[in-house]
Amino acid sequence: MTVGKWRSEGHIDSELNDIGRQQAVAVASHLSKQEDFVAIYSSDLQRAAETARIIASRCNLPEVILDPSLRERHLGDLQGLTMRDAQKQKPIAYKHFLSAKRDQELPGGGESLIQLHERCTSFLENLARKHEGERIMVVTHGGVLRELYRRACPMEPLNGKIMNTAVSVIHIHENGQNWTIKKWGDVSHLEEVGAKEDAFGGDKTSG
C-alpha cells in the first residue's frame, strides 16, 4: 500500500470542519425529502454527532440518541498518527493494523475487526427489534459501515472508498437476523453543492 498523509482518528473526538458542515447540510436536505423517520441514532464522537444534529433539525426529529456502540474502531497506539508516522513510530501496531487476521487486536487498547463487528452489528440488530416496521437513521463512521456491509453481504467483499455523508439503506428484518442492502454509498446530494470531491471518508484502512 502507499503510505500517505492520511491521519487515523479512531476514538479521537474531532469536530467537523467547514467542508464537513457543508456536506452535513447537503445530506440533511436530501434526507428531509425522503419518507418519514421516527428516530436518529449516532456515534457520540463529535464529528458524527454534529452531523446527526444537523440532520435531525432538518428532518424535524426532536433529539439525537448518542451511543458509543456506533463509534469508529479504536485504533490504540495508532490514533492521531499519519500512516507514515505510524510505520516509523509504532511499527508493531502498524503491522497489526495491516494484518489480514480479523481477530488481531491493536496495541494500546485497540480493537480487532471482530470486536468492532460484534459491537456495531449487535447494536443494529437490537435497534431493528426495537423499531420493527419503522424507518430510522444511523450516523456512524467508515470502519463501522464496512462491518455492517460485511454482515449484510458476507460473501461480497467491499472494495473502494466510503465517502463522508454517503447514504446507505439497509433493510433488517426477521427479528434482526436478515440484512439486505437496498442502497449503498449514494453521494448524489453532494454534487449539487460541489462538495463531492472533498467527501473522501476513507478506504479499507480507514479508522
Rank of each mutant, 00 (worst) to 15 (best):
E174I: 02
N164K: 06
G202Y: 12
L113P: 06
N164M: 04
Y149T: 05
V138F: 06
S122P: 02
T180C: 12
R151A: 14
F123I: 05
N178T: 11
L148A: 08
T121S: 06
E147G: 00
N175C: 07
V193P: 08
R150W: 13
L127S: 03
K130A: 11
E156A: 09
I172V: 13
I162S: 04
V169Q: 13
V193S: 10
M137I: 08
V144L: 09
S188N: 09
V144E: 11
F200T: 01
K130R: 09
V167Q: 12
P154L: 11
E134I: 03
R151D: 03
E118Q: 12
E147H: 08
E156L: 13
E191P: 00
H189N: 04
I136Y: 05
Q177V: 06
E134P: 06
G194Q: 14
L116P: 01
K161T: 11
S188I: 02
T140S: 10
E147P: 01
T180F: 14
W179H: 05
G176P: 01
H173T: 08
S112M: 13
L145N: 13
G142M: 04
V144G: 05
W184F: 14
T180Q: 14
T140N: 05
S112L: 15
G194C: 11
I136R: 14
L124C: 03
A166K: 02
V187P: 01
G201D: 06
N178G: 04
